[in-house]
Write a protein that binds this DNA or RNA. Sequence first.
DNA 1: TGTGTAATGTTATAATATAACATCAAAATA
DNA 2: TATTTTGATGTTATATTATAACATTACACA
Lengths: 162, 162
Amino acid sequence: MQDPFVCTPVSHHHCISSALDKAETLCRSRNVRLTPIRHRVLELIWQQHRPVGAYDLLEQLQQQGRVAPPTVYRALDFLQQQGLIHRLESLNAFVGCAHPQHPHQGQFLICKSCRSLVEITDPEISTVINNRAEAVGFKPLNQTVEVSGFCAGCWQKEQTNG
Amino acid sequence: MQDPFVCTPVSHHHCISSALDKAETLCRSRNVRLTPIRHRVLELIWQQHRPVGAYDLLEQLQQQGRVAPPTVYRALDFLQQQGLIHRLESLNAFVGCAHPQHPHQGQFLICKSCRSLVEITDPEISTVINNRAEAVGFKPLNQTVEVSGFCAGCWQKEQTNG
DNA sequence: TGTGTAATGTTATAATATAACATCAAAATA
DNA sequence: TATTTTGATGTTATATTATAACATTACACA
């Protein structure tokens, strides 16, 4: 089932802190360290609540002192390993994961117009892909599924405008 | 159904020339120009018959004279637009398309070990993805599906070795 | 032959990412 | 508590991927 969570400007502060709380709990339980830098990077990612590039993050971090690229990339690596963020290959960007509690194959719907993103976690998609891969003798380990198109709102506008 | 074409070292020269012939026919019928540079880039891509980076191609082109990055990227853009090659987002690399006659959503199986690649074109995969996207109000236009794992051969080796 | 368009050349630089090594902080252990 | 070990971060430099901007050339067609 899909988490019907919707983030509105009003609820956004909650969505950020909820994500950070989850992250803290998770890291504690796994006995890994959500250091200040990692925490900060995750926070920045959730503040945007859309795909963010590493150098965007870098720029924001640099407002509080000198930071170099490796620092950001290390934090991103860590957050990815812990399943707290996903990397979007088609955008070279990162986004917070809404349900990091258990590892999963996410699928990403990326709006061409407003650049918003929805993550769905549909077992049927991953199953079909795995089945087809196995049918040709391939052992699937990890899936990248990214769909470019229009979100509901932008699609309406597209249609009325043209 | 999947094209059961298999490229072996022995048949590889044929697979290259077949791809180039198809490309020529296609471009002629579409009234677009498969110029020498574009032809050469496509040839180099098929010679490798695995994902190749733009700068790999550049290096090979430079063996016959000075060439700069934009030249390669323009050729790649053209070939992509014509559906003659695909871009692999998770690798920043390009690979020849085995059936460029009609536009399609390809799915890519990428071997972590030997870096070989298989393209499958499974309508069920694209359909399921589109359905699920539409179910959440999203209008899907383009899919990126890339699966990382082991090809049949390498998976066997993996299992016997460890 | 001119004239417009598409393709390519050329230079510079943007954007993304990592290697390599130094330093520092925390946790684990004696 | 001092020691050691490990993991995290700092720092510098550079690799890799990609594009902007403008000049020049080749081709298609009037």
